[in-house]
Simulated scan of single mutants.
Amino acid sequence: MPELPDVEGFRRVLQSCAKGRVIQRVDVRDAGVLHGVSARRLRHALEGRRFTEPERHGKWLLAHTGEGPTLMLHFGMTGQLVCGRPADAAEAHDRVLFTVSGDRQLRYRDQRKLQGLWLADDDCAVARLLVRLGPDAMAVDLKEFEAVLSSRRGRVKTVLTDQSVLAGLGNLLADEILWHARLRPTGRASDLTGAERRRLYTHMRRTLRSAVAAGCVPRRDSWLTGHRDDLFPTCPRCGDLLCRSRMAGRTTVWCPQCQPDGL
């Protein structure tokens, strides 16, 4: 599932492939990924405009067009944004194609179609679509981070992946951050000490910076993510067998030795 680092990578794809270029054609191959806008209106609103500097908030990508509307993309579990050329054959899961000047083409590709594309006519419409989101996990400062965690009684992993608390963290990132911070995912967020909240924030920032540089949550041998899918997964730090459980419907992985049940 695309998380903050993946979407930041898609933002860079949009920036390098289409920023400053005229949208010459919008080809909707599957209107099932459009939300609140028809294929005809999407074409009429975007064709002839230029993509400007894109933004990201959490797992959302905002493709601005200057004084025009903003195309808002969410990638669900299987979405991607790829850059190609109009002459390239379309793949089976290419849902919407944006041909831009300079013989380039942006493609919204998604197998499962759990999210998709929205069109926001102005800043107010953008704000309405993002109103339920908390601060971006890359942008939140320590004071705000401590405040939102100390006010939540849920399990710390559940709080971290709640998009209304922090925008951008998903299952893999939350497990990775908690492993680096040596905190068990099942502890209550409100029970964290001040030192633990600060440690968690520090490791969230470090993990995000590293993952953003990689464009994904990397499966490194030195990271939990590099071992979580092994048949008999072991901790890359201490060698202990990793534990697995279900939390909020998602597989949660942690090390019982490095992440003791002290909360």
Rank of each mutant, 00 (worst) to 15 (best):
V159Y: 05
R49Q: 12
G102P: 00
D110A: 05
K59G: 04
D94V: 12
D88I: 12
A127L: 10
T65D: 00
S38P: 02
E146T: 04
P86A: 05
A139F: 05
Q115R: 15
L149H: 02
D136Y: 11
V96G: 01
T99I: 08
G102I: 00
E55I: 03
L114M: 13
E146H: 08
R112I: 14
K157H: 13
L71N: 08
G79N: 06
H93S: 09
L106D: 06
L73C: 10
R109Q: 02
L119R: 04
T70H: 10
V82W: 01
R49D: 01
F51D: 01
T99V: 10
G154H: 08
L114G: 04
V148I: 14
Q115W: 03
E55L: 08
E55H: 09
H93L: 08
Q105Y: 02
R50Q: 12
D103G: 08
E47K: 03
Q80K: 13
A89D: 08
C83L: 05
P135L: 15
E91T: 11
P135M: 15
R95K: 14
L114I: 12
G102C: 01
R152I: 07
D141Y: 14
V100D: 05
A147C: 13
C124S: 14
E144Y: 06
R155W: 04
D122P: 00
E55K: 13
E144V: 08
R41E: 11
L73G: 05
H74V: 02
A139I: 09
R43Q: 15
A127F: 09
V156S: 05
L97E: 14
E91K: 10
